[in-house]
Nucleic acid binder design. Sequence first.
DNA 1: CATGAATGAGCCTTCATTCAT
DNA 2: TATGAATGAAGGCTCATTCAT
Lengths: 201, 201, 201, 201
Amino acid sequence: MSPKIVDRDKKRAEILHAAMKVFAAQGIHNFRMIDIAVEAGVGKGTLYEYFPSKDDLIISCFHQFFEDYQAHAEQVQTRPDDPADKIRQFIKLSFDFFRDQKERLDIVFDLYAAGLPRRNGRPLLDGMDDAYRGLIAEVEAMITDGIERKIFRPVNARLAASQLLALLDGLTFQAAMGVTNLSDKSLPDEISQTFLNGILS
Amino acid sequence: MSPKIVDRDKKRAEILHAAMKVFAAQGIHNFRMIDIAVEAGVGKGTLYEYFPSKDDLIISCFHQFFEDYQAHAEQVQTRPDDPADKIRQFIKLSFDFFRDQKERLDIVFDLYAAGLPRRNGRPLLDGMDDAYRGLIAEVEAMITDGIERKIFRPVNARLAASQLLALLDGLTFQAAMGVTNLSDKSLPDEISQTFLNGILS
Amino acid sequence: MSPKIVDRDKKRAEILHAAMKVFAAQGIHNFRMIDIAVEAGVGKGTLYEYFPSKDDLIISCFHQFFEDYQAHAEQVQTRPDDPADKIRQFIKLSFDFFRDQKERLDIVFDLYAAGLPRRNGRPLLDGMDDAYRGLIAEVEAMITDGIERKIFRPVNARLAASQLLALLDGLTFQAAMGVTNLSDKSLPDEISQTFLNGILS
Amino acid sequence: MSPKIVDRDKKRAEILHAAMKVFAAQGIHNFRMIDIAVEAGVGKGTLYEYFPSKDDLIISCFHQFFEDYQAHAEQVQTRPDDPADKIRQFIKLSFDFFRDQKERLDIVFDLYAAGLPRRNGRPLLDGMDDAYRGLIAEVEAMITDGIERKIFRPVNARLAASQLLALLDGLTFQAAMGVTNLSDKSLPDEISQTFLNGILS
DNA sequence: CATGAATGAGCCTTCATTCAT
DNA sequence: TATGAATGAAGGCTCATTCAT
């Protein structure tokens, strides 16, 4: 009458964490289910108790990733009022998210590539473009605000937002490649400086 | 140099071109050798006359991609003397390379992701980081030149070069996602403007 | 005989009944243990408290089936004395057994097929041939009696018995297929008529 | 330009033949693809060059079976004119088909059972009931003819046809079980005799 | 005694690669 | 040289069975 009680959410999270480690080590295109099972310390069949298929596991990992990112972003509630400070904080925030988690850095580009649209068939990860558009809109709002308050030059706000995100993605890519070091403490400030120089009045 | 050799090179190039189309449509992780054979109009076995393995075919495609990029870059020989103009032309050049070839845009991020280092084993594409470092060095030289000639502010040239390339990569990614439109004729100018604003004296 | 025993027997019967329903719906080769557990409203593990294995459960179902058939047959104790009437009643009896239980009809051929001998290894259901031979012997006795009493022609009694059972099995098969309707009230009489015509003096 | 030439039809038939042997030995529910591959002397993958899936292989076997049966039936072109003789020949024909092919006898009931309708989902073999109805119609025509020519009593022709086929199926089942011996040379005659007695005027 | 989470043996199926023609 | 039929290693997934609770 009282069967084994298991914290399914906890075990699910553990498996997802093990998956992240495996993805980081082998990429999301080269791992075997057994690898994750071993990493998570469970049997192969157990994975299927929590995720209906291999693809689902990858997709769930992607969602976890975005949820963590959003949680991280919202954790900084006291957004400053000054638009330039907002931008500075946004940049710092993004760097913070990856700085100490090589694991995440290693899978983010796999996930990015997996979310690109395909001419034939669906991409593995659906809806990445919409999530990205939301991000752009957020940054665009900051810039528009700055323009209205004459703090920024009257640049194309949408494009400037695109540029900032492009910049951050590109640096993340360089970091994943080992070409740029995110841990350099002065990086966020220098980036902010150059970018803001470009749009400040 | 005998006719036979020419024929081989031509067919090899045809197969590589077919491969690009297949990669663009299905991604470099989801295609089968038969897909390329069909696209190229040859038999499956024939592929192995020209490429020793599937991985080799992908790698060759990657090299072709870089060779084309370099050929495109060198085709613009009359580099201007002014550092700012150099940067402007570099930016324009990069946009030109992808603008009219959706096919290329679709595979570049697969290739990028395939070139990232892995904790376990080699990445599929080796040496991408070195190629990238070379690119950074080129841009860095332009900026250093500008700084010495007092045209640019005394910024960290290495970092500024990183930023410019990051910006271009990030925009390419956005374009691949369909979030940013590379065909917008004013794009290179606006990008150049903002970036140069950031570093100009 | 203690209450516990009764409860066990009752639950065992319930599981067996649930199994019959599942077999009828999915066939004895396509069901999963969980299907029966759900149908019976018990846990998967509980099935193993009553049956040591999946095969055992099927076999037990088969025995249940035969026991029910025999119980049904014996329930008609007042066998008539006239051999022709005996045959008529035997035929009617067989029809009665399936007429109102589509469930049984649907599994009988799975069970039949499962009982056929295999060149490699044992069949799933053992001893079906012996049970069948017993049935033939019973009918053969009726016919022999009829021959001795000059009511039937001096046919090969063994073969005639085979024929009658074959006829009934074949009709059951047709009914399972949906080609012949066992519910047709005149069926037993017409069958009896034709068969007896064939062997009556 | 001249690749390996293979008689695909021939190899397909060989695989089908190997499959029949395996089905006879293990049943259509217990075999593994590798068993058939070994029996046919080919690799596992080769099976999939000829049949898209395991189920398809089984279904193809079933179709082959029916084609062979029809070919056998049509091979006897000189059908007699007398209805009773027609019936006799039909019975003889059916016995002939199995007599010397234990292999076929062993799988026929698996196929029969696989063709029965299921409450949940399609049966493995589709359209068996229609094929069977066609068979009944053929026999029914013979009997109707006999009735019209006053050779047979005015029985229910449809039912009588059902009975004859049921009889033959039932005997086949008994033979598969090892309870009745189809090789008994007098069997067809005795069966014909009894059946015709039942319906002759 | 009842349960269902966990397990891993087992098997279908795919597809890169080979090689006879 | 070009081909595609043949191959079998490899891996995703299922499900009977176990056993801690």
